[in-house]
C-alpha cells in the first residue's frame, strides 16, 4: 500500500497532504524518539502520540515518509509547517496506537481489507 492509501481510511484525518507518495511496507509504533531513530526502517509509517516538530525532524533524518498521530492529540502549527517542508505526510486519528497498529498490520499482511473511515470504529474519547 502507498502513503496516499492511508488518507480517508483507518479513521485518519489528513493534516498535511503535501508529501512524496511512497510504498509503505511496515509500521513502527513508538513515542520514544531515540527508539524511532535507532530502530525504525525508512519505508515505515510512524505511529505515535508524540505531536511536536522534533518528531518530524527524526522522521526526516531516518527517512520516514508518514506520521500518524493517535488519540486525537492537538498538533502544533510548527509541526505541520516542518512536515510540509520535509514532504512528510501527517495524519491524525482518535484511535489509540494499539488500534492503528493492529489495523495497519492486518492490511499489510493481507489479513483484512483497508478499513473505510465510515465503518464504525472503537473510540475511547
Amino acid at each position: 500500500m502507498k502513503t496516499s492509501d492511508l488518507a480517508g481510511h483507518f479513521g485518519l484525518e489528513t493534516i498535511q497532504a503535501e508529501f512524496t507518495d511512497a510504498e509503505i511496507s511496515a509500521g513502527y509504533t513508538s513515542d520514544l524518539l531515540s527508539d524511532v531513530m535507532g530502530k525504525a526502517g525508512d519505508s515505515d509509517v510512524l505511529i505515535t502520540i508524540q505531536a511536536h516538530k522534533n518528531t518530524v525532524a527524526v522522521a526526516g533524518l531516518v527517512g520516514i515518509g508518514s506520521v500518524i498521530i493517535c488519540n486525537a492529540r492537538p498538533i502544533p502549527d510548527d509541526m505541520i509547517a516542518s512536515a510540509r517542508e520535509e514532504g512528510i505526510a501527517l495524519f491524525r486519528t482518535p484511535l489509540s496506537q494499539f488500534e492503528v497498529s493492529g489495523q495497519l498490520y492486518a492490511v499489510l499482511h493481507g489479513l483484512s481489507a483497508i478499513p473505510r473511515s465510515d465503518a464504525p470504529v472503537a473510540n475511547r474519547a
Binding site: 520514544l32 524518539l33 531515540s34 535507532g38 508524540q50 511536536h52
Partner: peptide, 15 residues
C-alpha cells in the same frame, strides 16, 4: 514527555 531521555542516545550514536 517530549519523547527523549530513553537512555538510547549515546548507544545509538556509538552503534
Amino acid at each position: 514527555s517530549l519523547g527523549f531521555g530513553a537512555g538510547l542516545g549515546l548507544p545509538n550514536a556509538k552503534r
